[in-house]
Structures are given as C-alpha cells and as structure tokens.
Nucleic acid binder design. Sequence first.
RNA 1: GCCCGAAUGGCGGAACUGGUAGACGCCCGGGACUUAAAAUCCCGUGCCCUUCGGGGCGUACCGGUUCGAUUCCGGUUUCGGGCACCA
Length: 802
Amino acid sequence: MAKYNFTATEKKWRAKWEAHPIQKNVAGKPKYYCLDMFPYPSGTALHMGHWRGYVLSDVLGRYKILQGYHVLRPMGWDAFGLPAENNAIKRKMHPSISTGENIVSMKRQLNEMSTIYDWDYELDTTDPAYYKWTQWIFARMFEKGLAYEKEMPLNWCPSCKVVRANEEVIGGECERCGETTTKKNLRQWMLRITHYAERLLSDLDGLNWPDKVKRMQSEWIGKSHGAEIDFTVADTHQTIKAFTTRPDTLFGATFMILAPEHELVEVLTTDEQKSAVEAYVKQSSTLSNVDRMAAKEKTGVFTGRYAINPMTGRADMPIWVADYVLADYGTGAIMCVPGHDERDFEFATKFGLPITEVIALDGKVSDMPLKEAYTGDGLLVNSGEYNGMNVTNAKTAITAEIEKKKCGKQAVNYKIRDWVFSRQRYWGEPIPIIHCETCGPVIVPDKDLPVALPEIESYEPTETGESPLAKITDWVNTICPTCGKPAKRETNTMPQWAGSSWYFLRYPDIHNDNALASPEALKTWLPVDYYIGGIEHAVLHLLYARFYTKFLYDIGVVEFEEPFTTLFNIGMVNYQGKKMAKGTGHGVSPDDLMPNYGCDAMRIYEMFLAPPDQDCEWDDSGIDGAFRFLNKVWRLVEESPIIPTTQELERLRHKLIHHITTRINTLAMNTAISGFMEYTNHLQALAKTQGGIDQATLETLAILLSPFAPHIAEEIWEHAGHKETVFAQSWPEYDEEKLKSDTVEIALQVNGKLRGSLALPVNADKDTALALAKQQLASHLNDVEIVKSIYVPAKIVNFVVK
RNA sequence: GCCCGAAUGGCGGAACUGGUAGACGCCCGGGACUUAAAAUCCCGUGCCCUUCGGGGCGUACCGGUUCGAUUCCGGUUUCGGGCACCA
C-alpha cells in the first residue's frame, strides 16, 4: 500500500497533457467561450487571490469539455498602465522588461496550476500588433465625434511637479513627498460614454449577471428625472442653471450653491467677498471628491450675490459656494431646499439660512422651526396657487409653468460622466492624434497605425504636467497628414482601460493584421459565454467593455451589443485582514505551498475555502484537509476490490452525480467539494461492509473529480483500466428515480419547538402522520389542548397547543 | 458622505422555495495501531443547566409578520468593496 505520490503523479500527467492536449477532437462541437479577466503583470507573481478565479474558471472549462463543448480558454496580459510603470520605476528597469519578466513568472505559475489555457491565443496589450487596433478603435471614435478635448482639473503635486493619480494622493497629500496636492487644469482627451448612458442602462435587463452588479452599474449611470431651471442672478446678466429632481419644492428654494470649480464663481463673487471665496476655492482644491463628500461638517462661503426665485420673483436666494456640490454632477450648481433635503438642511442650519416648509404630509403647515428635513410624500404648502397639490402632480405642474416662463425645462440627468481618456504617462498606447496649427487635431491615418511607443531614456513623469513623450522632439515633430505642414504628435497616452475594453474580441484571431478580428472568428466565438473576474471590476471595467462593444456594434464591426452573456464575480481574498494585492506584495504565494501539497490539493482547497462569490480570509492551515481528502480517495481506490454493483452503491453514485452537477452549474464549488468529502466518507464505510466498490463508482468518481483535481482523476481513470484521457469521456447523467428513498425522517414540534423525530413513508397522508406523531409525543401532549396541527409532507409536524 | 454587499461555534463555512441550525473541513481533547514518531482509523467537540431521562438559550443588535424566521419586513451597529487618473 503506497501513499499517494502527488509529485510523481502530477508530473506524469502534466507531461502527457503537454504532449496530447486534452481538447483535440473538436469538430462539430458547440462553442463555449469561458474567459477570465486577464491579469496586469505589475508584480512578479500571482497570489492565492488570483488562483481563486483561475481555478474556478478552469473547473468550469474542464466541465464544459466533458459536456461536449469546444471550449476556448485564452489568457493574456493587461500590461500597460500606472502600476506596471511604477513597478518598473521601482525596479529601475524599462517597463517592457519588467512586465516581460513578470509575464514569464506568472505564466510559469499558471502552468503549474495545470490550467487548460491555450497559449496559442496568448495576447499582450503592449504588443504593437495589438495596440494598433486599440488605436484604430480610438480613430473610429474620433471620427464619430465621441473623442474630444477638454480642460480638466487633475491632481498636481507642487513639489514633485507631476500629475498624481487619485491613488497616489492620500488624504490630500502626495504619496511620494507628502506635499499637499492641488488641482491643475490640463487639456485632456475625453470619450463621450454619456451618449451611451441610456443603452448601457436599459440593456442591463437582458444580461445573466449578478443582480448586485447590475444594480451597481445602474446606480453608477444614475438616471434621474426632474427639471433644469435657470435662476437669474440679481444685478447681473448672468443665470445659473441648476438641475433638480424636486421641482415641486421650488417655492422652498431659499438659497443656491455653486461648486467651487463652477465657472460663475469668479464672475459672480462681489469685491467684498472676493478674498474669502478665493481662499475657500483654493482650500477645497486640495480635497478629493471622496474627502469632500465624506466631510463631517459642511463648509461654504457666501458670494455676495442673490438669485431670483422664478416662482416668487423675489431676489432673496443668497448664492454660496460649497464643496459638497460637485462640479461634474448635474450642472455643478444646485437650488437648495433646506426644508426637504437633508444636506441642504444641515447647511442652512449651520449658516443661519432661511428654511421654508413647502411639503407637509397632511397639507398643514408645521410649527417652525423644523427639526429636520422632511423628504417624504405629501401636499404642497407655502406654494401659492399650488397649495394642496400632491408632490407628483406638483412636479409636472411647476415644471410646466417654468417651461411657459422660458426659464427651464423638464430634464433627465445622468450621474455618469464622460471618460477622461488620457494619461500624462509613458507606459500606455500613444493617442494617434497629430496637432496641426491649420487643421486642428487630426487623426493618424489607418495606414500609419500603430503609432509605436518610442524608446525613451527617462520615462518618469515630467515637471510640466506633460507626458514624458513630449521630451522626444524627433518623435513629437511630424507632418500633418491632411495639409502636409509641420505638426506635433499628441503626447498623452491612453489609460490601461483602453486595451482591456476590447481584448475579448481579439483572442479568437490574435494574429490578424487586417482587422481587430475577422468577422468569421467573431461570429464563431463571440459573445463571451462566461466571464469570470473580481468583484472590484463590477462597474468600471465592465461598463467600459460594454461601451466599446456597443460602439463597435454601431460601426458594424460586431453583431452583438453585449460582450458578456453570463458574468460571475469572485469575492476578494483577504490575508491577515487585508486584501491580497500584488502592488504591495501582501499575499500568499502558491509557490510556497506547491512543494508540500501539490496542485490538486491546492485547487481543491481553494475551491473548498468559501463560496466563490463571497470575500474570504486566506488561512493555510485548512489545506491539510484537502490533502487528506485526496489521500483518502486514493487509498479507497487502491485498496478496494472491484465487486459487482449493488443498489446502495448505485444510489450513492447517482446522488453524487446529482450533487456535483447542480453545484457546478451555479459555481457553488465549496459545497461541491464538501459533497465529495461526504461521499467519500460514506463510500469508505460501504466499501468495508460490502467488501469493495464497483467499476461504475470508480469511473464516475474519476470523471466527476477531474475538473477539480485533474491529476488524481487521470490516475484513478487509469487505475480503472483505461488508456485514453478521462477528459475524452462524457459527463455522467443521474437518474431521478435512483435518488429517491422510500422513507424520510421528519421533525416533530410542539409550539414550534423540536420535540422528536419520526421515520415516515415519503407519501404518508396527514392523518397517518399526525396519529404517529401524537403517539411519539404523548408525554408532551398530556395535559394540553391541541389548537392546530400542521403537517408538511417529508418535512415537519407541528402541534400548536394551549 | 453616496452606491453595492456581508455578519451563523475556537476558526473557514453548511442549511436549495419560511420547516430538525451548525453538513463538510480546520483546530482541540480522548482512544486504537506503533519500541517510538509520522501516517491512518475510531470517538467527542455551540453555550449553560442536569437527578444523564432531558431542559433552557443560541444565526451581529432591537422590533415586527408567521404554527414555525439564519431565511421575509422595519430600524440600528460593525466590517468589506466601489466612488470615475489603481484596474
């Protein structure tokens, strides 16, 4: 009796799979595109957090092969971007070298996991042959007016003199030098994702995605109905546009607030208030949106001006500047109704601004002052001719009056904003634009794509806020493709998102030089059937990929509008209370565990650890359980004589097929594994009493186990007398009839408390069940009156007594 | 702050549609085998009380609906993810 030698077994099968890949006989099979979110090689190694997703999708992929699909399992590298560049700077290497090294080590790790990735389809977003098409898509967007230039405020470190990403600004301070950061306006390339807001929202309905992800995206797009109202500023020719979802409360609008970045702040502020306002604007520029929204106490300053309430005609609305109003949501200005908005109420209370009640539940004015904002339903008060009208009707009526007065209109507002698409960094796709003094920004002609990222001495950010590319004059100076005059290249690069928003289209046809993928390849493989990746990508990556797909649909490149039919989001793996992350080197490397436990045990444990969609805490110690389980399986297989099939073995076998199949279908892998363990325990006992196990049990076990622990599964399959791979088999089916048993144990309760149990025929009628239950519970039913008797077949009997 | 989630023994978790809470595994304790150890096997393991028959409590907290709630509803707390230049 030899102990299961995982090292030798895993080596043996990995070599066999390498020589004869398990997916050979694919002709005529239906396709299944099972895709992982690709990693960004910004660190040298994968941690167990990555394993979680890749093992999960590998199990699904192998399962689909056994179900008879031709499965596409590609893998690639999202290798551009800030983290990769910072990793390179840290290691004093060129980013192409450091990411290249990282890719080599990650690929080794993926192979050691015995994943079925097909490296014939490997893709790298930094490969010019790939980013040629990233640039090509940008060119099409530019032509359609979806890419445009705009001045945007960016985080600026006055000490380092570089643009800082939000990630690099911690609590208003530069991560590198600790200096308080400010904002600097720089020209940026933007993508008009807002044009797709409505479609991005409504098409969520048809997706087989987790509800919570759909909800997050829908909240992110943030559609709301209301009115856009123009408020005239007294003693000026200016008007302030404000979007509100509550036009019904217009009579209660007692002041207005502009975001500190609002263009009218400078124009409107009176001389007396000038210094105070300027100081406030400067101070708020050091804060991020998150810091501003999370501030404990509201801050703000008066501009010295008043706006006219269009309903009352009175110039009694002081105009303030406050940073809880964001420049990029709505119009960057709000009308404030402190009586019926919590934040406005807080602000008005703090600064002594008037509060007017205009909605009351019963239509009766409350005693002033109000203790809090009332945000509920009700009837209008203090609202002139609208008094007594309900909120819903008032919204329509007051909007209609504003429209009549030509000082506003009904409006739909989206929270989603256009996408800032340029970075002042080296390590990204050059934006294929040439700036010509005569022609303006001109797109690089397709024949000149890709615009290759030039080699460069120093790729660290520059002191002018420009990309390091700006320093390479040879590269920057070029000729306008339209008029032939001297012109300059765009020096900003694209964000990492650019490459990851369409890569799933490229995989089936990665070597195509004439199109991003051939129509045939796209038709054969797309859309993606199952997409698996971290929950942290619930909004941005998935929204951007949907946007790109819709755009490519509109220009006729693809024939579908949604890229990912089914989505599964893996929960985070934490370690010592914190998220495992490559960037910080915080995590557990599979390399440390592999020599002691082997690949199968690690795959099993990773799946057993927790429900895949939930966050979990990594703990090495549990891996022993997975290791023992596999050894137990092997002993059972090796030591048990083969006997003819028995009814018990048959029932147990079908139960296992049923359990594993239903669990795999919902990716409930943790309970699939616990099902295997339970089965093995039963089988062990049964093998003892019956003197062995049957051939069918052996074979079924090998096939069912193969997606999870492929090496030992092959070994069992071989032990069962077979020469070809277990992955050439078909997934077994279960027989409903064989799952049924005749009797069932039901619970007996008195007043909902458990008082016993009873074995009953499954189809026992109520009278029989109650009679038997009464007998059983005689001691509990002695001196009481039974008020009600409940019998739920195969579940429970409950007596309600007095 | 806003949006999205989560909370069950010493620990990870199970409980499928409202029906016997704690499957499975880890840890821990006891036993078998062994010169010994490892490995393996068997038994025990939510808390409290017990006359050892059993009884009480228990799924973050407070309340509600129900014969019956980990599951549904209202409120609260704590923790995690996202918040647009990390991806």
